[in-house]
Design a protein around this nucleic acid. Structure first.
Lengths: 103, 103
DNA sequence: ATGATACATCAGCCCAGACTGATGAGTCGT
DNA sequence: ACGACTCATCAGTCTGGGCTGATGTATCAT
């Protein structure tokens, strides 16, 4: 097995996912690529708000932005999500033993 | 396939993981069960702070508390972590298509 | 060129929640 | 019984970050 190196939970990365609107945006982008205007009408949030959240998601590597005329299409990056999922899964697997440190 | 039902990302659950001290605590508990005093000295955080974070982790189902004399041992619950990991993984898998909704 | 549309960015408001010191409750050793 | 210890809870402070209205920058249609 290659990826047996210990992956640390990165709270900064998790923070990006831990927002209701950002989570909703990711769900929507999982089905198809969408531009900002779609996300605005689907979520009901204000344009500036959606745009800010997209910036956060982009800088964290969870979405890709593809400018297209006056639109900007956003697309999910599954690899980034899988890295987080794997880190959590590996943490769960590491917890097998029932050892307890004495006081 | 059994678990093919769509799992929604729960931002409230992710919020619990998205804190540096809580993430550190989970890492430590992955190796062995520890009581609060261990976590206090390992993390360097104040006792009240650690205790508060443990309460959050407990209420979210990520750790189990086992009172033991005047100590309280905390143990990781891998199933809870796996549920989050699976939700993220499933979201990543759902993103295969390169469809884009027209404007 | 003018207006309309899509999106980004900015400044400011506001609140959830992380942190702290103090106190309370329970348990142990002597 | 008394002090020492572990841990939980409380009240209060303060900062990060989500939200908004306004403005700026492109791009499109006519």
């Amino acid at each position: 097995m290659y990826h047996s190196r210990l992956m640390a939970l990165d709270a900064d990365v998790l923070k990006v996912l831990a927002d209701p609107l950002r989570a909703r945006i990711l769900q929507l982008l999982a089905a198809e690529a969408l531009c900002t205007c779609h996300l605005v009408e689907e979520t009901g949030a204000k344009q500036a708000n959606v745009s800010n959240h997209l910036k956060v998601l982009r800088e964290a590597g969870f979405v890709d932005a593809e400018p297209c005329g006056r639109f900007t299409y956003y697309r999910l990056r599954p690899d980034a999500l899988r890295r987080v999922a794997d880190a959590l899964h590996e943490l769960a697997d590491r917890a097998g033993s029932d050892a307890r440190r004495p006081c």
